[in-house]
Design a protein around this nucleic acid. Structure first.
Lengths: 307, 307
DNA sequence: GCTCATTGATACCTTTTCCGTATGGCGAGG
DNA sequence: CCTCGCCATACGGAAAAGGTATCAATGAGC
């Protein structure tokens, strides 16, 4: 039978009071009870622990070595209980804790840093952990509760999960600086019919950035000339920079500035926009998740068409 | 009115039991009471703290984020109460105390035994318990009061903790006996530019022995040829002994004598020294801790440059 | 050295808290 | 739709904690 099963917090508080005031009587006043019950509680504490903690004298009490040792621990424990309660309270209010967020691709270049910055200012004591994972992994991780938030493009409707578009972005063509189209002000897809194209990410399932782009070309009766597939926007832009071909990027990816790179927007009449969405569990009513969603919404409220 | 005045230990124990068993019913059996009182105790706990800790479902309970946070603290507190009682008991008996010390790596080879010996002569009745733990674990354990003293290299400034350098040591290169440099009297880092090197401990964070050594090489424009990373000085020296390559050791690690091992000091003009530091809680006014610190200081006072 | 004031311990009763049995409500699974 | 399992509520009894009165012990002051 461990001692924790019999030691009570009142006993700890009373003992600490006696130590701090040097006498039972003064301690009794301090904790607002009369002196006899206080005496009994300390006696019981000593009995449970099995060692004498105080030496009683006519002019007050003095601590035994055991009492001194126990006093240090007891004050510490009382403090810990207090701070544990505070921590739990603050965690419940979403001011404290840890939030796991799944991110992917070009979102880490611009959107995520902006949201992170805004969130940290409001909730500096919340640890936000970013996990790079693709869309399917994000959905699975949400279901498994390994993450609370996912940020990506093109979420299908998923049962049990709630999805919301944060904002939509224009599409840009990415050219090497010496390309004949690099100085154009707007692009049309037709212009790229015979250009060597670099696509990403590697197509696996019929979803994603590559798939959406392919559909756009096919809708317009164009058979795109794909010369290279890479795994992400960074690699793609790097290849463009070395002159291998042309690629695509959304607005927020333009943060990426490599030498000899030109971003040319598509003509608005082409009517292609890519939405960035945020996804979370419907039944997740954690204050942290809600706060993060709100910050993400507010953060991108004004961001519509940066040039 | 602080929470510690209303939270009871029974409530903590009951809550922990519910968390561990995943349901009120199972927990009620575990703590040998019936289910209704257990329900009420947890309700009262939630009321006092002011935050919902558990989500009740038809198939058991799940923790809210606040509940998860509080669970960690609660288990810790219960353990502390237990160990506080034990400590007081043992302090009351002849063992006038117990001192937990966190140590790491090569300190156990020479420094620690020397301090232990000196301390035991002065305080034979004190039980000194050594815990092998790395630097971050030491800092956490100090905060949690699971240890009172930490001994390690390269402590950063930590709030609430006080750190003091015990002494600094020279660095040695460790060669197999048949190595062409093994009979040199002093080394320079340049001499090791192309040697196969064995480093330790495995680099995880940008601190520690490996990191410091790498910095020294890079400062001198040398790209070290690391052929192997191991977890400690003992393994490293063992590998040197088997002829795989060259490694490093501080002065006190030379206690380690394996067959076919040569220690060659670095030239003083290289100006590399490694400090061994001792760390403790600032507000720790326990006589035991103070005594140990004093012994550690005195013990290494004369030890400056053993050859 | 005696008295007296002060402190902690004991006895006894009251109040509060806590536990147990019985029962109700609610959601999951057949 | 019904049953089963789980949690919540209600109420009576047991146990623990607190209050008042009083005693024993010890040191201060005369």
């Amino acid at each position: 039978m461990s001692a924790a099963q019999q030691v009570g917090i009142r006993q700890l508080r009373y003992f600490v009071a006696v130590m701090q005031h040097g006498s039972f009587r003064a301690a009794a006043d301090a904790v607002h009870i009369s002196q006899p019950p206080l005496t009994r509680q300390v006696q019981q504490l000593e009995e449970v622990i099995g060692v004498r903690l105080l030496e009683r004298g006519a002019r007050g009490v003095t601590a035994t070595p055991a009492g001194q040792a126990f006093f240090e621990d007891a004050t510490n424990i009382l403090q810990l209980i207090d701070s544990a309660a505070t921590r739990a309270r603050r965690t419940g209010m979403g001011q404290l804790g840890r939030l796991d967020v799944g991110v992917f691709g070009s979102t880490v270049l611009n959107t995520i840093p902006r949201i992170m910055k805004a969130f940290r200012e409001l909730y500096p004591e919340v640890e936000v952990v970013l996990h790079n994972m693709d869309r399917e992994t994000q959905v699975r991780a949400l279901r498994d509760r390994r993450i609370a938030i996912g940020i990506n493009r093109f979420f299908d409707d998923e049962p049990g999960l709630h999805c919301e578009a944060l904002y939509s972005e224009r599409l840009f063509a990415v050219f090497p600086a010496n390309h004949r189209l690099a100085e154009r002000h707007t692009m049309r897809f037709r212009d790229l019919a015979n250009e060597p194209l670099i696509m990403y990410p590697r197509v696996s399932r019929p979803t994603g950035f590559t798939y959406e782009l392919m559909k756009i070309f096919h809708d317009r009766g164009i058979n795109p000339n794909i010369v290279q597939q890479v795994d992400g926007v960074v690699t793609a832009v790097a290849l463009v920079s070395s002159g291998i071909g042309t690629s695509f990027a959304v607005d927020s990816a333009r943060t990426l500035q490599l030498p000899g790179i030109r971003y040319v927007p598509f003509d608005p009449t082409e009517n292609v926009r890519f939405e960035l969405s945020i996804i979370w569990r419907e039944e997740d009513d954690s204050a942290l998740t809600r706060s993060f969603l709100q910050v993400a919404r507010d953060c991108d409220k004004g961001i519509l068409e940066p040039t």
